[in-house]
Write a protein that binds this DNA or RNA. Structure first.
Lengths: 124, 124, 124, 124
DNA sequence: GTGGTCTAGACCACC
DNA sequence: GTGGTCTAGACCACC
């Protein structure tokens, strides 16, 4: 599981970490029960501050993607333990991206094919 | 074309304005050639600073969604005049939202049906 | 609205700030729409770091007690805008405290009278 | 007397153990004079470190809820042997929870009814 | 060893 | 002026 950060991005680093871990879980590169790297270790790997990684982990925890077991650190939650709530922000964000693709000239079919492809990346 | 702002949101106001105009264009509620309201007028309507609307319009111009004409103000660009480039951020954002939906428990089919529905909203 | 911190307490400072603001809102000492002090100002007043106050404000925001308007800072949310959800932790915490009182020798009636008194402090 | 731990909780394990024993005593599921399980046995049952259980028992002893007898292990103290002091933390915690309930939209009467119900659970 | 908290101070985006 | 982000580094509670 490799994380790539863009330090020039407007997206805060802790958000980028959070986003890539979410994509990693959905894509099966991070399995339920699997341990995430220790905050300190990941921070050193990425060349960022411990607090930044910590904030990402706390976000993931609040959202229910991971659980912090005091004994074993932070780990991916089993699917069925995750609360099946679709945040409004997710729906709004999806609509926005689809609109942007449409305005970039992609046809309805091209867009749907892209979505299918992305869904299939998410093998688990 | 009505814009609704959420002042409690983490998304900056100028971004919200930009996003809703993009969705408005894709959905056909704003037609190519149509004039956007004057900066000052929209700012007053929304109860925000003129600078905020100005920043949103500037973004839309940079992205090629609208064109500024000194005489006629800001107007929606014709489709074929828009550069068919898909920003990396759009693709990344789409993937993120699809992953979030997947982790919220939606099946591949439910997600694709949602995408189709959203694409069909974008009549023009 | 005066906050008193106990630096020797096991309760984290940001929690203490959060708790006292919650009690302040319920007690009517902080009214809906009222602005909380700026993070920097409160931090200086309390002699703590800006981040500590910031974390308390973010918690309050997540819980729906306050809203951060980019124009006017952080303010108490109107009652009816607050989501009527009772966190499990609140119920569990209440039961624990009632048990502790019982074991401290207070009778059922004394405890209930105390609860009534506390509820009546919360004028609004 | 069954203890259920939540390893994902922010409440430390030893606190959870302590809290549930306090609730157990108040609720009459643990009677005065009754022996608590041996540290090692309980630790094994719960799947936690011996030190964790030990710390919980030590807390309970300091607070006067249980007494440690070298021969008979740790046992629940008789009611009248317990010091009738209400810790400041208990009062503060009670007020906090009542305020949270109030802000969650419960009426004064609903809250008091909930308190009564909880007090009546505590049969002994 | 693990995450959680806190400081002092800087920089930045938004308004 | 406002909150949000980030660093470097320290200390601590929990396990």
């Amino acid at each position: 599981m490799l994380l790539t950060l863009d330090f020039d991005s407007e997206v805060p680093i802790y958000q980028q970490i959070r986003n890539q871990i979410v994509v990693g879980i959905a894509g099966g590169r991070l399995s339920p029960g699997e341990r995430l790297p220790a905050t300190r270790a990941l921070a050193e790997d990425l060349g960022v501050n411990t607090m930044t990684v910590s904030k990402a982990y706390q976000l993931l925890r609040q959202e229910g993607y991971v659980a912090a077991d005091r004994r074993a650190g932070v780990m991916v939650r089993p699917r069925d333990a995750q609360v099946p709530v679709v945040p409004e922000e997710t729906v709004r964000g999806l609509r926005l991206r689809l609109c942007e693709l449409r305005l970039a000239g992609l046809s309805r079919e091209e867009i749907l094919r892209l979505c299918e492809k992305m869904c299939d990346e998410e093998v688990d």
